[in-house]
Design a binder for these strands. Sequence first.
DNA 1: CGCCGTGACGTTACCGGGAACATAGCCTGC
DNA 2: GCAGGCTATGTTCCCGGTAACGTCACGGCG
Lengths: 340, 340
Amino acid sequence: MSAGSSEDKPNLRSIASLAGVSHMTVSRVLNDHPNIRPETREKVLRVVEELNYQRNSAARALATRKSRRIGVIVDRPVEIGPDSTLRSVEHAAREAGYSVSSVAASPDDDGVRPREAVAYLTAHGIDALCVIAPRASSVDVLRELTEGLPTLIVKADDDANFLTASVDQRLGATLAVQHLMDLGHREIAHVAGPLDWLDARARERGWHAHLKKAGLHIPPAFVGDWSADSGYEFAVAFDELPPFTAIFAANDQMALGILHGFRDRGIRVPEDVSVVGFDDLPVSRHFLPTLTTVRQDFHALGALAVEILVAALEGGSTERRSRIAPELIVRESTAGPRSM
Amino acid sequence: MSAGSSEDKPNLRSIASLAGVSHMTVSRVLNDHPNIRPETREKVLRVVEELNYQRNSAARALATRKSRRIGVIVDRPVEIGPDSTLRSVEHAAREAGYSVSSVAASPDDDGVRPREAVAYLTAHGIDALCVIAPRASSVDVLRELTEGLPTLIVKADDDANFLTASVDQRLGATLAVQHLMDLGHREIAHVAGPLDWLDARARERGWHAHLKKAGLHIPPAFVGDWSADSGYEFAVAFDELPPFTAIFAANDQMALGILHGFRDRGIRVPEDVSVVGFDDLPVSRHFLPTLTTVRQDFHALGALAVEILVAALEGGSTERRSRIAPELIVRESTAGPRSM
DNA sequence: CGCCGTGACGTTACCGGGAACATAGCCTGC
DNA sequence: GCAGGCTATGTTCCCGGTAACGTCACGGCG
C-alpha cells in the first residue's frame, strides 16, 4: 500500500530512522524494556506496524546466543496419514541439510489458521514452505501470503503460484469404485471428508466421475469430518438395510466408524454392505472385518515434496509437480452385493 | 578428553589460529571451496575434528540470508500417542515464543539414533531438548550428550541429570489390572511393549506389582513391538482357549491386533477373554468390540513438558518433574471371566 | 624482461540485532 | 547552588559467520 518505500526487508535501523530515534530505542521498545516514554514507544510501534517489521531471528540468536528453539526427539511416532507425510518431510529435509519447523492444527481448534501459521514460520526464518493436507480456503489465503517464498502444496491440481506434489486422489477413488463395481455393486454411496479439503474434494469427484462414466446412479454424498465418530453417525442413521450395497469412505477412520455403526445396527459387513476406506493405516488391516482400502505412500510423498522444494531452492527448478499412484488393498470388508 | 583447552565454544577464528591460517580459509574449507591446497584443507579439518567444531547456524543464516529451514503447515494431523504429545509440545512452545525442531524415528529404521539426533539438533541451534517416548538405552546415551543442555525426558522416574514429566504409567497399569480383578479375573496376562522402552517397562512393572500385591498368579509377559501385527501374532498362538481370562495390552494397537487374532481363532472378546488396552486412541472407541483402555492425556503432557522446560530456561526452575494421572475408560472389550 | 593471469590465501566490511557503557536533562536534598 | 541519582536515549562494539576485494608468489608469453 505505502508508496514504494522499502526495497529490502526493514530492519532495526530503518525503522529507527523513520521514527527519528536510534536503533537501540527500537530494540528496547520491542523487548519491553522499562524506561521508554509512552509517546516514544507508540511512535516506534506505529512505524513497526506500518512497515510490517519482523525481527530477524538469526541476528537475534547470534547476538543473544539463544535460539529460542527447543529440540524434540520422538521415538516411534505413529505413522498415520498426514503425520507420516510430515515425518518423511522432516527426514528428507534433514538428509538434504535442511531443518524443519512445523505448525500443526491442534485438536482444539478447527484447523490451522494459515495467516497465523505463516506469520509464525516466517518470523522464525524459513526459506521455503510446504503445506500438507490443505483446505481450499487455506490455499486461497496462502496465495497472497507467500509472495516470494517458494511454496509447495500437497495437492493434485497444478497451480501457477505453487509447486505441487501429491498422491493421485482421483485415481485412488477410481480404484475403489472400480473394485466395488467389479464385485457387482451398482449402488455405491460415498462418505466424504469436509469438501473444503482438497483431498476430500478430489476423492468425491473421482467417485462421482467414475459412477457417471459407468452410467450408475449417483446418490448424494454424505459429508463427514474425517473422524471415526462421523462415520459412526452416518452408519447408525439407517434402521433397515440402507439404500445402497457398498460404501466408499474417504478415509479409514470414517470407514472404521461405519463398521462400528453398522454392527450396532445389525447390518453385516461385507454380507449386507461392502466398505472401502482410503489411506491404509497400519491398523486398518486389523479392523474387524479387515478393511479394504486404498493405500497412499505417504513416505514417498514427503520425500518427493522435499526433493521438489530443494530443487527449486538450489538448482534450476526442474519439475514443478509430480504425482504418486495409490494402490488398492483388498481385504475382508468388501464382497459381492447381497442381492446377487 | 582433551585437557581443559577451550573455555567457550570454538568458532572460525579459534580454529583458524590453531591451524595457523586465517578464518576465511577455514570457512572456505568448510564450504568446499576450490583453490584450497589439500594439505591446508587437512590441517584445518584436523583442528575442526579435534575441537569438535560446529558452525553457528545463526551466524551463517545472518550472513547468507538463508536459514536452510523449511516451514511446514499440517492441517488436521492425526492425534495418536507420542505424535500428539509432539503436537502439543509444538503448540505450547509456540505459545511461549519458542519454535521446535524435531527428529522422529522413521518407519524404516529401528528407532531414533540419539547420537545423530542430538548432533543434528545442536547443529541447527537449540536451547533445550525434549525427549518423547524414550528407550532406556537412549537415555543412557543422552546422559553424556546433553551436558549443559537443559533436557527434559518424558519418563516417570526421577533423574538427577534430567527434567522429567510423564503420565503415571504404573498407575495406569494398576487401573487396568484392578478393573479386571474387579470383574472377577484371576488369570491376567500382559502383552508388553519392548522392554527397552521406559513406558513399556513401567506398564509391565505396574501389572506385575499389582498382581503380586493381590496374591495372584503372575504369568510371564509376552513382549510385542507396539504394533498391531505383534498383538495379532500373540493372539493366534492359541488354538484353544488360552490359559488366562484377561489380557492387559501395553497399547491400543497391540490390543487391536489381539482382537483380530482372537476373532480368527474363534475366541470371543469379552465372552472368552477380556482385553484392556492403553492410550485411548481416538479410534479405539470404534474397535469391535469397542476397547476398554487407559486414557493418557497426551495433550496435557506436552504442555507440561514445555512449561517445565521454559521455566528451567527462563526462571529459576521451580519444579523439576511432574506427573499426570491416567484414566480408565471402560467399554465393551471387558466383562466377567468365562468361568463365572 | 616486464606484463598479466591465476592459485592460494588474507583483510575488511558487512549481515541485524543486543549488551555495555556514555550522555544529557531533570529532580532531589542539603 | 551544586553533587548525586534517576530516566530516557544514543554510541560503540561485538556475536560468528560470509562476500567482496586485496595481496603475493609463480609461471607463461610476446
